[in-house]
């Protein structure tokens, strides 16, 4: 997993953009990130177009580098008692709508790797 980091103020940000939102610099580099974070907030969508039956966890994840992003959780269901705010999470990658996107699983769960076990160059695009 990679994140944009500012060469001037050294802070990370997400979503990607051409200028650092913290200092305005355009000296941005994609950096390897830890892939670790915590569950900042979430909702469980019970119905919505395209997925009317299976509840889906829509999670805001606070990455250890600072930025927050939205993603789904895997290897943990809506009824799991471990599903609580501040749960430590690790990135993995899944294919959704033909795109490889990040997803997060509870840290320590089998298959969770710091850099993502299915990371490849295409997901940078």
């Amino acid at each position: 997993m990679v994140l944009p980091q500012c060469g001037n103020c050294t802070r990370f940000h997400f979503y990607p953009r051409p200028y650092c939102p913290h200092c305005g610099s355009s000296e941005l580099e994609w950096r390897e990130a830890s892939g670790e974070g915590t569950l900042y907030s979430y909702t469980i969508a019970h119905i919505f177009p395209g997925n009317p039956t299976d509840p889906v966890i829509l999670a805001a994840i606070e990455l250890s580098e600072g930025p927050r992003m939205l993603a789904n959780l895997v290897d943990i269901g809506p009824e799991d008692p471990a599903l609580e705010l501040d749960l430590p999470l690790s990135v993995t990658f899944v294919v959704k709508e033909g795109r490889t996107v990040p997803a997060f699983r509870p840290s320590g769960a089998p298959g969770s790797g710091a850099k993502g076990d299915r990371f490849d160059e295409r997901s940078r695009a």
Binding site: Y15, G50, L58, V101
Partner: peptide, 28 residues
């Protein structure tokens, strides 16, 4: 769009599935 790239792909498809996300942190 930003909404499609960074929210829609995960299943955020309406105000009901987006606007509600902060609530648990707010309550906590």
């Amino acid at each position: 769009s930003m909404a499609a790239q960074f929210e829609g792909v995960y299943g955020v498809s309406s105000p009901a599935s987006s606007f509600t996300i902060p609530a648990r942190r707010f309550l906590r």
